[in-house]
Measured scan of single mutants.
Amino acid sequence: MAAAAAAGAGPEMVRGQVFDVGPRYTNLSYIGEGAYGMVCSAYDNVNKVRVAIKKISPFEHQTYCQRTLREIKILLRFRHENIIGINDIIRAPTIEQMKDVYIVQDLMETDLYKLLKTQHLSNDHICYFLYQILRGLKYIHSANVLHRDLKPSNLLLNTTCDLKICDFGLARVADPDHDHTGFLTEYVATRWYRAPEIMLNSKGYTKSIDIWSVGCILAEMLSNRPIFPGKHYLDQLNHILGILGSPSQEDLNCIINLKARNYLLSLPHKNKVPWNRLFPNADSKALDLLDKMLTFNPHKRIEVEQALAHPYLEQYYDPSDEPIAEAPFKFDMELDDLPKEKLKELIFEETARFQPGYRS
């Protein structure tokens, strides 16, 4: 834990890192770190609560700039109880001085990944967590956004079992017609939660990839272990087919990539493993919904509104309290091709509203 900075004593240090967030945020305490930044909790002297502050230093890398800009653009436009918001952003007053960006968010005690390492969940908890994931996802999908990296560590939890989806750095506007060349190379989302079509096709992607990830998360809540822990690309596919069985001819016809289709045709026939054999203690309604989410063919996979209306979630289902976005989200430009200098300018502009004396 960093010592509390005395008023006016300059930035606090946390594990050798400068955290320049005073005077409003003090009493910093280390939480963890990701690929390009550290997260601390801090005391907000204005709202009198502890908050989470993520320090991001992305400006050396085009990919990190892209992810940072995506996350900020999306989260500043989203407003939903099951999606983490941005409360404040701290950065230098000029673009030349801006080396880091500090993002202030609600402090959540833990995440689903940490929880599943230590606790076996009751059916009631599984049901409530799944409902909140789908409630947040309904809003995301209504904005025409794909999260693309749903996994237990991106689901934040607090002691009252509130759940918030975080990390929109890989999110995209849904565009089933656009052929994202190089899709697989830039697709760094965790393999275990990846839909089979991501490994088999490169053309376009749809909201059904997020539903697949939610199915993987439900299976993990039922058993405290990942359902498809593939060691590499082909191993991942083999794990999936080992449980779902061989795809039907109709399902194979959806695979545009001939090499991928021929690979699947070359494999020995596998039978589907019954879900109640894998999860003998699970609620039968939970397994019915799991089956509809972990469907090989993305066109037959359940959609988020149908999933919310499934009998497993009937005690929570309330369409009048499951809000959607006001308007579909649009990125003005494809960020993939922009140089990091341009992305830095866009991050600077996007964060201006939090600067003292800002006038829109």
Rank of each mutant, 00 (worst) to 15 (best):
Q97C: 05
K207S: 11
L107F: 10
L134I: 07
L222A: 09
K340M: 14
Q66T: 08
P196C: 08
I86T: 00
V273P: 00
Q236I: 04
I240F: 15
N87Q: 01
E186D: 13
S41L: 10
W212E: 11
G357W: 05
M221H: 10
P328T: 15
N257D: 08
T351Y: 01
Y43M: 00
W275A: 01
Y102I: 06
H61I: 07
P196K: 10
A325Q: 01
K344T: 06
Q249I: 05
I165L: 07
R277Y: 06
W192I: 07
H299F: 03
S57C: 12
P226R: 08
Y358M: 08
E314P: 01
C127S: 15
L265F: 10
D210Q: 12
G22I: 01
R353H: 07
S320A: 09
K285Y: 12
E314M: 00
R91T: 01
N82L: 09
A7C: 08
G136D: 01
D235W: 01
L115G: 03
V273D: 01
L134P: 10
A352L: 06
Y312Q: 01
V14D: 15
Y316D: 12
N224Q: 10
D288F: 08
I302R: 11
K203H: 11
A9W: 00
A174L: 05
A35M: 08
P93K: 07
D332N: 13
N253Y: 14
E314H: 01
P356E: 10
F168Y: 13
L150T: 03
K285T: 12
L234N: 03
D162S: 02
I198D: 02
A174Y: 06
D283E: 15
L237T: 10
S223C: 12
R301A: 04
D291T: 10
H178G: 10
L335R: 10
S57R: 14
S142R: 01
V39I: 04
A5D: 12
G8E: 11
P176E: 07
L200C: 02
M333A: 04
G34P: 03
N281P: 00
Y316Q: 09
Q355K: 14
H61Q: 14
C161P: 03
Q355E: 05
I227N: 13
N238G: 10
I126Y: 01
L265E: 09
A171L: 10
T94R: 11
R172F: 01
Q105V: 14
I211R: 08
P319M: 06
A5T: 13
D149C: 04
D100T: 05
I209T: 00
L244D: 02
A4N: 02
Q17Y: 01
D149L: 05
T185N: 13
L184T: 02
R77Y: 03
S223K: 07
K259Y: 10
R24Q: 07
G182S: 09
T68M: 05
A9Q: 06
G22Y: 09
Q62D: 13
E71Q: 12
L170S: 04
T351D: 04
D179G: 10
